[in-house]
Design a protein around this nucleic acid. Sequence first.
DNA 1: CATAGAATAT
DNA 2: AATATTCTAT
Length: 385
Amino acid sequence: MLAVSPLRCSNDERQGEMESCPDGVGDFSDVFPGGNLLDGIDFDDLFVGIEDGDVLPDLEMDPELLAEFSVSGCSGGEESAEKNASASVGKVEGNDSGRREDEEEGKSWASGLVSSSCQTEENQEILSKREEAVAVNPPPKVADKGRKSSTQPKASQGKRKVKVDWTPDLHRRFVQAVEQLGVDKAVPSRILEVMGIDCLTRHNIASHLQKYRSHRKHLLAREAEAASWSQRRQMHGGAGGGSKRDHMNPWLKHVPTMGFPPPTPLQPFRPLHVWGHPSPTVDHSVMHMWPKHLVPSPPPPWAPPPPDPYWHPHHQRVPTALAPGTPCFQQPLATTSKESIDAAIGDILSKPWQPLPIGLKPPSLDSVLVELQLQGISKIPPNCA
DNA sequence: CATAGAATAT
DNA sequence: AATATTCTAT
């Protein structure tokens, strides 16, 4: 069975770039040690080969796409130092199986990666190479699906799906686009346009957008909740009763009387976890969000809602989790070189945000401001193409 | 037929 | 959990 030698290649691989693991990414490496390659392999993949839809198992694109990828592939231009090895790493696996194949992606990616690595030497490289590069997938081309070499059909092929890896950076661009368009106008196609990343499809955007909105909703809800909480607290000296929802004063939510800017009041759209954005008016509203890693101490006893792990859990690679002394920690920001700064910013931006606990003051407002300013000179890369 | 968005699947 | 794919309404 899993014979398919070509397929099973090895696992390892990826290491090439990720080792640096500055901040974001290196994770996988450790996972492996555990050892069971088997786990990582999805047998299903091996068999598959046939795409339900189209029949024709032959290898769909390959060299071509890859090439394309590498070339224009989005990497384009930016490269902001974000973090070199950045995140994306090669998760893209593009492997065969026209459809099933992913089933346990979670697993396979994170721990396994094995499966993905197989066979696609190139793929990985490319993908991982440029983080920005969207890691994307087959651009809609695949024109020649019908033909291709018949040599070893199953082995490589497939690559139809290849998930897009929404790296923090990509995500930032996405958010920017959304902001730029305005929430209501931000529909997938427009966003796509604005982002200018050709390697993404409308569907990719749509999917991400869906999630984004969902997240936003959550956040707002949380905020509202927090608001009512603080309010209650004010009212009856903190005797809040511990109700999760404000079922007691539903109307309260309509009258946010907290010490903070109301959650969603005026502006239709509020940038969430990404700063920047220019809208002078908005800056303040977002002021109470701080990067997790900047938040000094754990939330006060009364702080109601716990940090919302919702959004970027995936890239969440929080360095703090690293073992002490780990070499891959990126130094804060002592340097002045633009690159380092960029990197630092990127780092910050890519981290999950957490609502500022109500009475708490940010650790170093100054630093934050500085960052904000720097943001101003944001280097929004042209786009990959 | 194409798009957007929600629902569902992987 | 994160994306993709499918379904539905427009």
